[in-house]
């Protein structure tokens, strides 16, 4: 495995790790979003979906394990790269005018840190029920865990919704750059398709964010209710 070590030792290898882990998280979030949208079909559909996931431990734990490796790896690598970047320019410019970089590319690390905080909160909120222990005790008519009620109650709190929406905003920026940058980091580029790559990144980022944001907004505005 020495090649893995030497790969990780190089900045390019680290960026490949960022890209691959980012891609996996990205894939997961797409699936996650699709699942969330089932909330629009009402309590039954949503709870069936939740129960199906729970009823399939290999899938559930497989995903969880994957994410448990990939997210910390993404975060740790990001942390190392940021430190390296800071060390590489100890004295900053008194004046610096960006020429090509975007707001998204320049803020990716801050968005990332917010996202990390958010992910932890999100887990505490809906997965581990640390913030709201009562969520664990909700059951629907069929005795399944009432995930739908949990979501609706959770998003009835405007503060909560705000936290989520800000996270989604971070995500749109994170991915509008990250989703094409990862191709570049993996060396997947072709002058013909480079522009397409950037457009696709924005589109996917927006789809993801709109998809994710729609549920809390719908709950808060009463479109989705129990």
């Amino acid at each position: 495995m020495s090649w893995l070590q030497s790969l990780y030792a190089s900045t390019i290898g680290k960026k490949a790790v960022m890209a691959i882990t980012g891609l996996i998280i990205f894939g997961f979030t797409l699936g996650h979003m699709a699942g969330n949208l089932l909330a629009f079909f009402g309590e039954d559909t949503f709870n069936t979906y939740a129960a199906t996931l729970k009823g399939n431990p290999p899938l559930l734990w497989g995903t969880r394990l994957l994410l448990l490796t990939v997210i910390p790896l993404h975060f740790l690598t990001a942390f190392q790269l940021i430190k390296r970047s800071n060390d590489a320019r100890p004295a900053t410019y008194s004046k610096w005018q960006p020429q090509r970089s975007t707001y998204a590319s320049r803020t990716i690390r801050f968005g990332g840190i917010y996202l990390l905080g958010f992910i932890l909160y999100h887990l505490a909120h809906y997965t581990l029920f640390l913030t709201n222990p009562e969520f664990g005790g909700y059951h629907d008519a069929q005795g399944r865990h009432d995930a739908f009620r949990m979501v609706v109650e959770g998003f009835s709190n405007p503060v909560n919704v705000a936290v989520y929406l800000v996270a989604m905003l971070s995500l749109v920026f994170h991915l509008s750059h990250g989703a094409w940058s990862m191709f570049q980091s993996m060396g997947l580029n072709h002058p013909k398709y480079n522009q397409l790559r950037e457009r696709a990144a924005w589109t996917l980022a927006i789809v993801l964010t709109v998809g994710f944001s729609s549920v809390p907004i719908a709950v808060l505005t009463g479109v989705v209710h129990r």
Binding site: A9, T11, S85, D87, A88, T102, S181
Partner: peptide, 15 residues
């Protein structure tokens, strides 16, 4: 060698 010299990584900013 590039890494050893203490240069940073590429964030694909394009600057």
């Amino acid at each position: 060698q590039m890494d050893k010299e203490g240069f940073g990584h590429c964030s694909n900013h394009g600057e």
